[in-house]
């Protein structure tokens, strides 16, 4: 059984380490600082921590003001309350302001509770549109780490790379898919499994599903390449093109609406570089619903977000390409 670790805990711990090294790092929260595990940062650096209450528009804009003055501003709450609620402030106060070649302001929006795995809180709280919203905004970069190794390393990286970032974490604990030694680079995907018959591209919690699907396909003699495309924007176009060329088909899987989401981002590259058959797995333009923790797999299954569906899609594609 793979080890399960908590992204938010890792995020909170990493922030403290970053805060120790970089006095310019500030953290802003909106009454979810306990949940996002940013509160310990506030205990350690009370002058650099601000809780603006349940006021997300203010959260985002205060962070922008801090960033404008040279701070590295981390703004954190649940996914549903940032892109969906504050797209105007994110666009106009963070992404748009640019000067002296610096595009956007130095705000890092790191959220948890992305996608359907929010579970019990229900469809109203399951953000399945954030990739679409955020990647459509110029100057914005979008990351979805698959595990705590990625969370830790990417939090470090975005604290050092100038500009606006959106990073989405999951609510529940996630399996470790990367080794501690794994290196991360913005705009570069990771080949977790090499293969020649088909490619499975995933991000966030679907990376483990992709690996599971690859395992089962292997038993049937199908060699699949598994990509962790944690950097959705900028996306690793070269890696995607290469996969299309070498494997002849791509299945994407995302915890997001398939409209304008992760699969769409991959499809944009494939269709322009080396068109091959594709299947996009994700919410099929439908909202989610409540599901207790042990029922979350059922919820995902209802939307087709399973390793079985990935494997089936791979086979379906292969039947077409032959």
């Amino acid at each position: 059984m793979t080890e399960m670790t908590d992204m938010r805990t890792t995020y909170g711990e990493t922030l403290i380490k970053i805060g120790e090294e970089n006095p310019n790092v500030v953290v802003v929260g909106a009454d979810t600082t306990d949940s996002l595990k940013t509160r310990p940062f506030g205990k350690k650096f009370p002058n650099r921590f601000f809780n603006v209450g349940i006021a997300e528009a203010n959260l985002v804009s205060v962070a922008a003001g801090l960033a404008n003055e040279g701070k590295v501003a981390f703004a954190s709450t649940y996914a549903i309350f940032l892109p969906g609620r504050c797209v105007d402030q994110i666009r106009n106060a963070i992404a748009y302001p640019s000067r002296n070649g610096k595009l956007g302001l130095n705000v890092k929006m790191v959220v948890s509770h992305g996608g359907l795995t929010v579970g019990a809180d229900g469809g109203s709280h399951q953000q399945i549109e954030d990739i679409a919203i955020m990647r459509a905004i110029p100057n914005m970069r979008v990351l979805i780490p698959a595990d705590t190794v990625a969370v830790s390393k990417l939090t470090w990286i975005i604290s050092q790379v100038y500009g606006p970032f959106y990073m989405r974490m999951a609510r529940s604990k996630t399996p470790l898919v990367h080794s501690e030694a794994q290196e991360f680079e913005i705009g570069k995907g990771i080949v977790l499994r090499d293969g020649s018959d088909c490619t499975i591209a995933a991000c966030g919690i679907t990376v483990q599903m992709a690996l599971d699907a690859a395992d089962s396909l292997k038993k049937e003699g199908i060699s699949s390449r598994v990509l962790d495309l944690f950097s959705i924007k900028p996306i690793d176009a070269a890696l995607i093109e290469k996969a299309a060329r070498e494997t002849g088909g791509i299945v994407t899987c995302e915890e997001h609406n398939i409209m304008a989401g992760f699969g769409s981002a991959v499809a944009e590259i494939v269709s322009e570089t080396h068109p091959v058959p594709m299947r996009r797995i994700g919410a099929q333009d439908k909202f989610g619903e409540s599901a207790r923790d042990n029922e979350v797999p059922l919820l995902l299954a209802k939307h087709g977000i399973t390793s079985i569906n990935i494997a089936n899609s791979v086979k379906e594609i292969r039947s077409k390409t032959r």
Binding site: N47, A57, V62, A64, G65, L66, E69, D88, Q89
Partner: peptide, 24 residues
Amino acid sequence: EFCGGSLGIGLSFSIGMALAARID
């Protein structure tokens, strides 16, 4: 000092500026 136009944002932005001045 601020890319304004979408209304209601500037005061929040100013708060960020004022907090930064205080930190420093």
